[in-house]
Design a binder for these strands. Structure first.
Length: 613
DNA sequence: ATAGGGTTAG
């Protein structure tokens, strides 16, 4: 290891023009077919070192001009170089020209398509291989599975899995790891686990894949439990650590998150930027903005992702000014923002009510940062305008955006929510038309529509929507949030006020005060509700929901007194933050939990928790 | 020799 890196450092650096000269010489002195084995091996050596496209292209041209026959392996190297440099068009042309191809050729091009974000083309190639009498091997299967993973199509993945079985590759560790990952990304966590359990030779990567499967499928506790088992058999690396930090974030487990942070430090991975990003996000989601900032400030050389994580975190907490300062700082350091960064910036503006500034960022995205706004950016903007009551502008923008499928659903749902909040029935009807194509299987828009009619007092229309939903058997998961208290998970569903617990009056006062504050900040909307449950012979307040917040209060009799914990789904502005602090002074520790109810539809910046009924 | 598996921000 040490020797290798030393050698790498000591090797003289050859500049590309010199390389080219070298290539020419090599080629001229060895251009007789049949005696070129050393020439092609040197050519291959040069290709492997090449780091710019024109160099590779010039070698390609030389080969063609001199009329040399494409020898299988040399042209494979050429193709791999194109793929490595992201030149999928060149790779594709070369592939078409090659008189002979082998399994390596096909696999290389497949992986090229995957890196070019065209996984369906990789799948087509895989399916066409047998027409050219190319037999897939474990490399080809891995690549094909990887393509399925990008497409997240369970059926397709299962088909390839079946072929893996037929080809007797089920004992290949790498193939199995790829399958685990593929199932994880296609919502097939159970299949993934089955493969994991049946494997004979698991390694860090297998474990790491399995941990991230759970992280990605809202099974944070399973992820953490599996990680615990792993610690008995292996040493964690940055991959598995970032996954497990992510799992802690997803379940709002600050304590566990902190102990994972300790493990990260102990294993010397604190400065890994994947991990930094995960830690910043974890602390933000667990209610410790200060800790996010500490992790961020400790990073020595900044990169895009931690910056973006931090901007998003600041936006989430309503620190828009800080988020925008970070954005400026990042640009001054020459770090190029991407679409997610800009989404975070828009989100921050939206949460702080900086509507015009948000609009300026949106409009400057393309020419200033070279990022074409996508449906998500527009949805965020529509939401921002909608919150500010600028419904007509929001409508205008929504109409101009080209969005299809889930993007369209989110866009018009955001607009519809704004119509509901501001009771604009006329525009709500427009939104409902746009959403009509989705009503067969998605409850969200119908529920918002129903609520819009209800809040406008149009009971007959509301009843119609209601009966449509009943007829079609559409069921909306009730809004819920949840918290863990003393190893027990409490799930809080939306419901009605029934009666009060011992400190209910106090809680109710706080809630009312909170709503007054929300109204002062321009919030328009209605009411809150809370839920009560029996626990043994005690009455327990288990949940309070307000329009924009889902607060879970677990009011439990515990030895050291009453514990009330507060959760929230999204949005925490400065006011909310202060308010939570006050609640925590009165009732104890406050935690903030990400809502993981996967049936919720989020348009970035708003939560359909307001959609309950 | 050339092709294969896992990680972060929405």
């Amino acid at each position: 290891m040490v020797l290798a890196s030393m050698a790498g450092r000591l090797r003289p650096v050859v500049k590309q023009p010199q390389l080219l000269a070298l290539a020419n010489n090599n080629f001229h002195s060895n251009s007789v077919p049949g005696s070129s084995s050393s020439a092609s091996s040197r050519l291959v050596h040069l290709l492997r070192q090449s780091s710019n496209v024109s160099f590779v292209t010039s070698i390609h041209c030389k080969i063609v001009k001199l009329g040399a026959v494409y020898s299988g392996s040399t042209s494979n190297h050429l193709l791999t170089s194109y793929v490595r440099l992201g030149q999928i068009a060149h790779a594709q042309n070369l592939f078409v020209e090659m008189p002979q191809t082998d399994i390596v050729t096909w696999t290389s091009l497949m992986s090229g398509y995957i890196s070019a974000n065209q996984p369906h083309k990789a799948i087509s190639l895989f399916q066409d291989m047998h027409l050219h009498e190319i037999k897939p091997n474990h490399y080809a299967f891995c690549t094909a599975i990887n393509a399925c993973s990008h497409l997240a199509m369970l059926n397709l993945g299962q088909q390839i899995h079946a072929q893996v079985e037929v080809h007797g590759l089920t004992s290949d560790t790498v193939v199995c790891s790829a399958l685990i990952d593929m199932y994880g990304k296609s919502e097939g966590a159970l299949y993934a686990r089955r493969i994991f359990d049946q494997m004979k030779n698991q390694n860090v990567i297998t474990w790491s894949s399995m941990v991230s499967v759970y992280s990605q499928n809202a099974q944070g506790y399973e992820a953490i439990a599996l990680f615990g088992k792993f610690l008995h058999v292996g040493v964690p690396n940055p991959f598995i650590l970032s996954s497990v930090v992510n799992a802690c974030a997803s379940i709002g487990q600050l304590g566990l998150g902190k102990s994972m942070h300790c493990k990260v430090i102990r294993h010397g991975h604190e400065l890994n930027y994947f991990i930094s990003g995960a830690l910043i996000d974890m602390y933000a989601k667990c209610g410790c903005f200060e800790s996010s900032k500490n992790v961020f400030d400790r990073i020595e050389s900044q990169t895009l992702v931690p910056y973006t994580s931090m901007i998003v975190a600041a936006g989430k907490y309503g620190f828009a000014r800080y988020a925008l300062d970070l954005f400026d700082e990042m640009r001054n350091e020459g770090i190029i923002p991407n679409d997610v960064t800009l989404l975070g910036v828009l989100h921050a503006c939206s949460h702080a009510g900086l509507v015009d500034m948000g609009l300026r960022y949106l409009h400057s995205m393309k020419y200033e940062y070279g990022i074409k706004p996508c449906a998500k950016h527009y949805t965020c903007t529509v939401d921002m305008l909608g919150r500010a009551g600028r419904l007509d502008e929001a409508y205008q923008l929504s109409k101009e955006v080209h969005a299809e499928g889930p993007d369209k659903l989110l866009l018009w749902s955001a607009f519809l929510s704004a119509c509901r909040t501001h009771r604009r029935l006329d525009l709500a009807a427009e939104a409902a038309d746009r959403l009509a194509e989705f009503d067969s299987d998605v409850a969200g828009p119908l529920v918002v529509m129903l609520n819009t009619y209800v809040s406008a007092g149009k009971w007959k229309n509301a009843a119609n929507v209601w009966s449509t939903m009943k007829q079609k058997g559409i069921y909306k998961e009730p809004g819920c949030s949840w918290v863990e208290v003393k190893n027990k998970v409490y799930v809080f569903y939306v419901g009605e006020v029934s009666s009060a617990g011992t400190r209910a009056a106090e809680v109710m006062d706080l809630l009312e005060e909170f709503e007054v504050k929300m109204r002062e900040r321009g919030f328009v909307g209605s009411g809150s509700s809370w839920v009560e449950e029996e626990e043994g012979d005690k009455r327990v307040i288990v949940g309070v929901h307000s329009e924009r917040l889902a607060l879970g209060f677990a009011h439990l009799s515990v030895p050291d007194g009453v514990t009330i914990r507060v959760m929230k789904n999204l949005r925490m502005c400065k006011d909310c933050h202060d308010w939570f602090k006050r609640v925590s002074d009165i009732v104890g520790r406050v935690i903030v939990v990400r809502d993981l109810n996967r049936f919720h539809q989020f348009s970035f910046g708003s939560c359909t928790c307001g959609d309950y009924w």
